[in-house]
């Protein structure tokens, strides 16, 4: 049978489609260029002279991001772990206490003391959980701007003598706020990672003879660590973009501040072009690196973002017929 690729309307339309798409994209870009820059043209001298300024400014952002991220990660890890603590149901408390009371012939004094302790312990766990919840909800429910200003207030009011110049106050306030912020979000990520591992696996591990802590160490943690890598890396990118907000404190070496200050002196479009280029470059590069890392370390079928389960089939799936368009 001869092979035949019909040159039909379908293919021709595809090509026209692609051409049109390219035209539109280029056209929009050209129009934007025309609109913003116009006949002046982008001033290459200015760009060449000043792009270093912005690159250094961005490194300040990167620095802040990384420090806040690292500290936030440790705090977030513990906070997240904390939030997975079981809250003990009342029945169990009563049951445990009864068991304790039955097996011993202690005096009433000791028994009530024991009851008090159990209740206190359960209550403590409950309180700790709620505090953790509250912290995360507050961080997620309020804008970063407000958090930054709040952090600044704390530093200025409560530790006035600690910083010599206003710049370091601003810098520290920014760091503090960013850390608290990322700790909150990372706590959620860690919590989800720890909880998503199917409890059936823990059961299976225990049936094999692992203790609870051992199961945690050998079964839950390795999977959890794989699970949380994608959201954590995206958190880094997000934090980097959010670090631009410390500009409001006047952190003078930060990129938004630099851009803003220079913009008012002129060359707005050149500055915008530089800043856009820097951010898009960083975001794209980071995203690609992350994707490469993810595909290297991922376990198929394991992810916080699970696909919806298909209806299970009783018989093996037949190979599909030729695909219908």
């Amino acid at each position: 049978m001869a092979k035949r690729v019909p040159w039909d309307r379908e293919t021709r339309w595809r090509r026209l489609d692609t051409l049109l798409a390219a035209v539109i994209v280029l056209g929009v870009l050209a129009y934007m260029y025309e609109l913003m820059v116009g006949s002046r043209g982008l001033d290459p001298v200015y760009i060449a002279a000043n792009y270093g300024l912005y690159v250094t400014a961005v490194t300040v952002n990167l620095y802040m991001t990384t420090v806040a991220y690292a500290v936030g990660m440790t705090a977030g890890f513990f906070l997240g772990w904390l939030r997975t603590i079981r809250s003990v149901p009342i029945k169990k408390v009563v049951h445990d206490f009864r068991a304790f009371a039955d097996t011993s012939s202690r005096s009433k004094f000791v028994l009530s003391g024991a009851l008090g302790l159990t209740v206190a312990w359960a209550g403590l766990k409950y309180l700790v959980r709620r505090l953790g919840d509250a912290y995360v909800e507050i961080i997620r429910g309020t804008p970063l701007f407000v958090q930054i200003l709040f952090a600044w207030s704390i530093l200025v009011v409560n530790f006035p003598g600690l910083f010599t110049n206003p710049t370091s106050v601003a810098f520290s306030a920014g760091l503090l706020a960013l850390t608290a912020n990322t700790a909150g979000y990372q706590a959620e990520i860690f919590r989800a990672g720890l909880q998503t591992v199917h409890s059936g696996q823990v059961e299976a591990a225990r049936a094999l003879g692992f203790s609870r802590l051992g199961a945690m160490r050998h079964i839950v943690l390795p999977q959890a660590l794989r699970l949380i890598v994608p959201p954590l890396t995206n958190e880094y990118i997000g934090l980097f973009k959010a670090s631009t907000l410390v500009f409001i404190l006047g952190v003078q070496t930060e990129i938004t501040f630099v851009a803003n200050r220079n913009a008012f002196a002129g060359h707005i479009f050149e500055i915008f072009a530089i800043v856009t280029a820097i951010f898009l470059l960083i975001t794209v590069v980071l995203a690609k690196v992350i994707q490469a890392l993810e595909s290297r370390f991922r376990i198929p079928g394991l992810g916080i973002q699970q696909t919806r389960a298909e209806r299970p089939r009783a018989r093996p799936l037949r190979l599909p017929e030729a695909p219908t368009p």
Partner: peptide
């Protein structure tokens, strides 16, 4: 058999 074109 599968892929024989019946559905198509």
């Amino acid at each position: 058999p599968s892929g024989s074109g019946k559905s198509t």
